[in-house]
């Protein structure tokens, strides 16, 4: 490859032509983003309207911040916001490190078939449809479910665990880990394979055992990956997966389980308050966006790694 390929003093068109294969490679992704991520943003306008589908965006009346104010004043605002943050941070604190630990453990596994079996088994829940998975969770914690049965040995009276609001958070977070730990560890495993073996050899010569090698070689080597993943993860703090919430919650525990995205789903799709739920969704996205910026700024200050 000629060195001038990357030179920035050439006109853009020339550079694109020179690297056309690369551009073609990324084209589908760009199209995807335009179609499914940027174009829909125009639809956010309905948050400021009394949107009537048949009248369309241009035919509906503009109402300014009416729906935002209605949401902020709604009796559900604080509890739904609190639930979103609570469930999100719990997932982040417990769910984020889990794949890292798992990857480190996997890294220590030796032998041919054993690591593969472990890997396959732990990936599996990721490939089960969310609906089926939640059906399984519901069965496990039902009145006669296996988890309820085991909990019975520790003095838990047999009752559907999902009827108890205080149990929703642990069920949600733990099942999330079960579901995602294998898949989530792939990125870290990839990063681990990229570590220069010479570093380990050097550490060994210095007398480092396995533990010391992990702490002083492995972890520092994958810290950039961890930080990047963490920043990205921060952007999702408010977007607790509404599919899973909807599939798990019930009316008895709305106060503990209903989050903003499930609230948006119920009001928008089942109650057809399109504008109201669009406003709530937009609020959610704005908070999300702010959190990414915050996380990025903090990360930039504390370490050299940042997204931009």
């Amino acid at each position: 490859m000629a060195k001038d390929m990357y030179a920035s003093n050439k006109p853009l068109a020339t550079r694109i032509w020179k690297n056309r294969e690369l551009y073609i490679l990324i084209l589908p992704v760009i199209i995807y983003f335009i179609l499914f991520q940027y174009k829909p943003m125009a639809g956010l306008m309905i948050a400021f309207q009394d949107f009537r589908p048949r009248a369309g965006i241009w035919g509906s009346d503009w109402v300014g911040f009416k729906h935002f104010i209605a949401f902020f004043q709604s009796p559900f605002f604080l509890s739904r916001l609190a639930n979103t943050l609570r469930i999100s941070f719990a997932t982040l604190i417990f769910g984020f490190p889990a794949p890292i630990f798992f990857a480190l453990l996997m890294n220590e596994l030796r032998g041919k078939w054993f690591p593969r079996v472990v890997q396959t088994v732990t990936y599996m829940p990721h490939f089960i449809s969310m609906v089926v998975l939640c059906g399984m969770i519901r069965d496990f914690v039902a009145r006669d479910g296996v988890i309820t049965y085991i909990a019975g040995f520790f003095g838990y009276a047999p009752d559907n665990m999902l009827n108890h609001g205080n149990l929703f958070l642990p069920i949600y977070v733990l099942s999330n880990i079960w579901q995602g730990v294998g898949w989530g560890s792939i990125v870290y495993l990839a990063a681990l394979t990229g570590i220069d073996m010479q570093l380990y050899e050097a550490a060994k010569i210095d007398g480092a055992g396995r533990w010391k090698q992990t702490v002083h070689v492995t972890l520092p080597s994958i810290i950039p990956t961890i930080v990047t993943m963490f920043i990205m993860r921060c952007g999702q703090i408010m977007s607790v997966g509404h599919e899973k919430i909807i599939l798990l919650y019930n009316e008895a525990i709305y106060d503990d389980s209903d989050v903003i995205s499930s609230f948006v789903y119920r009001y928008g799709l089942t109650m057809r308050q399109y504008s109201y739920s669009a406003a709530v969704g937009l609020f959610n996205s704005v908070v999300n966006f702010s959190l990414v910026i915050l996380a990025n700024t903090v990360s930039k200050k504390l370490s050299e790694t940042s997204l931009w």
Partner: peptide
Amino acid sequence: SCLAGCQGGGEESSKTETSKTET
């Protein structure tokens, strides 16, 4: 990004579809 797209995309794309139609 693909994963994130999968999560958020569906909901929002349906919103714009409604915008396409003229009154």
